[in-house]
C-alpha cells in the first residue's frame, strides 16, 4: 500500500472519512424496519436481556395512562356484551395473562388459537365459540392436509404440524444450509419441504430458494431461466433483488463472480 501514489492514498483517506450528511437515512432505515429511533441502542440491549417482561414493560411505558383507561372501558364493554350474548363470537381476543394449567385450559373455550392468527393455517371449525373437540381437531387437520400429500401420523396431526410455523421452520432449514454454502443439504431440505407442503403458503419463497440453490451450485442456465420466469410471473416481486444475479444479461458468468456466493459442494 505504501507504494501507492500519495494522491491515491489521500483519496482513500477521504473515502474512509466520508459520512452521510445527517443521521436521517439511518433513522429512516430503523423506522422502515419497525424500530423506533429515540433510544435505539438502549432498547436493543434492554430488550434482548429482559425478554417478554422487558417487552411488556416497554409497551406499558409507551402507553399513555389515558390509553389504558380507554382500553379498560372497551374491554369491560366487550365482556358485558359477551355475557348478554353468549352464543356470539368473542369480540375481544386476548391471550391469557398467565399460563393456564392444562386441566383448566381444557375446560375453557379458547379465545385465540395459533391457527386463528393472521397468516396461520386454515382455521379449525370453532364457529360460535364452541370448544373444538378432538374429532373436530382431527377433521380440521385432515381437511388441511394437501390432496395427494403424505399422510401424517395421528400424533403429529394433534400437534398441528402443518402450521405456518412448521412450514417456516422447514424452509428455514433449506435457507440456512444455503447460507452455509451447502447446496446439496439445502436441496434435500427443500425436497423435504416440497414433500410435506406441496401447496405451502411459502411456495414463492421455496421457488426462490430453489433458484438460488441452482445458481449457487453452478446450474446457471437453469437458475437464469427459472429466475426470468419467476419475475415474469410476479413482475413487482421484492424477490427480484435476490434473483438479480441471474436476471442480468451476463448471468452466465455469475458463478465465478464475486457477487454470487457459490456452494462449497457445488459439484453435487
Amino acid at each position: 500500500m505504501s507504494e501507492l501514489d500519495p494522491l491515491l492514498l489521500r483519496a482513500f483517506s477521504a473515502a474512509r472519512a466520508e459520512r452521510p450528511r445527517s443521521g436521517k437515512g439511518k433513522a429512516q432505515t430503523l423506522a422502515a424496519l419497525g424500530l423506533s429511533t429515540a433510544t435505539a441502542t438502549a432498547h436493543a440491549s434492554a430488550g434482548a436481556a429482559g425478554g417478554p417482561l422487558a417487552a411488556g414493560g416497554r409497551l406499558l411505558s409507551r402507553w399513555p395512562w389515558w390509553g389504558i383507561g380507554v382500553a379498560l372501558v372497551v374491554t369491560s364493554g366487550a365482556v358485558l356484551w359477551a355475557v348478554d350474548e353468549p352464543s356470539a363470537a368473542p369480540a375481544v381476543v386476548s391471550a391469557p395473562a398467565t399460563p393456564l394449567a392444562s386441566s383448566e385450559a381444557d375446560t375453557i373455550a379458547p379465545v385465540l388459537t395459533v391457527d386463528q392468527l393472521p397468516n396461520a393455517a386454515e382455521p379449525p371449525n370453532v364457529a360460535n365459540g364452541t370448544k373444538p373437540t378432538e374429532a373436530t381437531k382431527a377433521a380440521a387437520s385432515t381437511s388441511r392436509r394437501p390432496a395427494g400429500g403424505p399422510a401424517l401420523a395421528p400424533e403429529s396431526t394433534a400437534l398441528a404440524t402443518d402450521s405456518l410455523r412448521d412450514e417456516i421452520e422447514a424452509i428455514e432449514r433449506a435457507s440456512h444450509a444455503l447460507s452455509q454454502r451447502r447446496c446439496a443439504l439445502a436441496r434435500s431440505h427443500l425436497a423435504a419441504y416440497d414433500a410435506r407442503f406441496p401447496n405451502g403458503r411459502l411456495r414463492r419463497e421455496a421457488d426462490v430458494v430453489a433458484i438460488e440453490i441452482a445458481g449457487r451450485s453452478g446450474q446457471i442456465d437453469r437458475a437464469r431461466t427459472a429466475a426470468r420466469s419467476f419475475v415474469a410471473q410476479f413482475p413487482d416481486t421484492p424477490y427480484a433483488l435476490r434473483l438479480a444475479p441471474w436476471l442480468r444479461d451476463d448471468a452466465t458468468e455469475e458463478a465465478g463472480s464475486t457477487s454470487v456466493v457459490t456452494c462449497i459442494d457445488a459439484a453435487d
Partner: peptide, 23 residues
C-alpha cells in the same frame, strides 16, 4: 389448544424482542 397458545405466545414475544434487538 389453549395450553399450546399460552406456551407459544410468550415464545413469540421472546423471538420478536431478540430479533428486534439484533436488527
Amino acid at each position: 389448544m389453549s395450553a399450546n397458545v399460552s406456551n407459544v405466545l410468550p415464545l413469540v414475544g421472546v423471538v420478536d424482542v431478540a430479533r428486534e434487538g439484533r436488527l
